[in-house]
Simulated assay, not measured.
Amino acid sequence: MFIVFKYMERLKYLLLVLNLLIVSNVTASSYVSMTFGDIYNQADAVVYGKIMRYEDIAEKNTFLDDPEDLPPPLPYKGRIAILIKEVLKGEIREREICIGNPIGALTHFNLPNLDIGQEVFLFLLKGFREEKGMYVAINLGDGTVNVTKEEYIVYKEKLKSLHYLLSIPDAKEREKRYIDWAIGCVKDPLTESDGMLDLLNEKRTSTLYRDIVASPYKLTITQNKELCEVIYSKKDLGYIDINFISYLYKDKENKELLDFLIKWTKRTTVNRDNLYILKESLDLIAMSIKDEELIILNDQVKKAKEDKAKQKLIMQFIRKI
């Protein structure tokens, strides 16, 4: 009975970890990924520290092995020792903690490649209750976890502000402050994509990880204009940018914003590398212009199976706008 209980506890924990991994690895265009705000809210601890050492654990440490035969920590295939420099959330009294590499994880330790001695900024989930000082990192993707001291100061201030606004009891005031906070993130190059994701996400009551976000947010005219200026300053656009343009345009129809997107689309090389981002752009342009011929072409692009056929149709679309 004890063994069955241990397996059930482990299964519950691994399902949580895998769910976090899956929602944080979907494509940018679907925007079901956990946002900066979501991740902070969900994390048991947020720390800034230094990588001290790596340690592999015996390969026999698998989910189906007898717990009595396994070296600690039970559900992991490796671990990293982190020297704690500062705790921004949670109650961590240890000077050094371990991050486990969960069995079944989609990436190595849920982290980009990191070197010993590197300073990192981590959002953590607690490990098994009997494992003191053991955590699992929530996957933030490359570029967020590995920060300089100067970047860390920026993130620290953003999180302190977020922590404060989450404590505001009045829901309307909390949402107003949250929108202001996300816009502030968008305006800062370091946290731009984090802020965009927070504004783009929609509340999904069917999942545990939509506790904060209540999109679609209604922006003020000034807020919309300020965010458009961030877009206009860009020489190139990514997936998040295209979807953010769509969000801003739906909030307030804006010919200047649409013209900006059309100009970018016209000067973007149509090749295999750019197919999917161009498809996002075409979809928004066709929907906004409401030209029947463009709508038909856009639909054909979506249905085309071969890359060459997609490229040909995209070029036809671009010639007509």
Rank of each mutant, 00 (worst) to 15 (best):
M1Y: 15
K6F: 03
E9F: 06
R10F: 03
Y13W: 15
L16H: 14
V17K: 03
L18V: 09
S33E: 11
N41F: 15
Y48N: 11
M52I: 14
E55R: 03
I57A: 01
A58Y: 00
D66R: 00
P67V: 00
D69I: 00
P73A: 02
L74V: 06
K77W: 05
I80M: 14
V87N: 04
L106K: 13
H108K: 15
D115N: 14
G117M: 10
Q118T: 13
V120K: 02
G127W: 01
E130K: 09
K132T: 14
M134C: 08
V145D: 14
V145E: 15
E150R: 10
V154R: 11
S161K: 15
R174C: 13
R174T: 12
K176D: 15
W181E: 04
C185I: 13
L190A: 09
K203M: 10
R204Q: 10
L208E: 12
S215I: 04
T220C: 06
Y232N: 11
D236V: 14
N243M: 11
Y247H: 09
Y247E: 07
D251C: 07
W264M: 06
T268H: 04
D273Y: 10
K279A: 05
L282D: 02
I285A: 03
A286Y: 09
S288G: 08
E293F: 03
D299M: 04
Q300F: 03
V301F: 00
V301L: 01
K310W: 00
K312D: 05
I321Y: 02
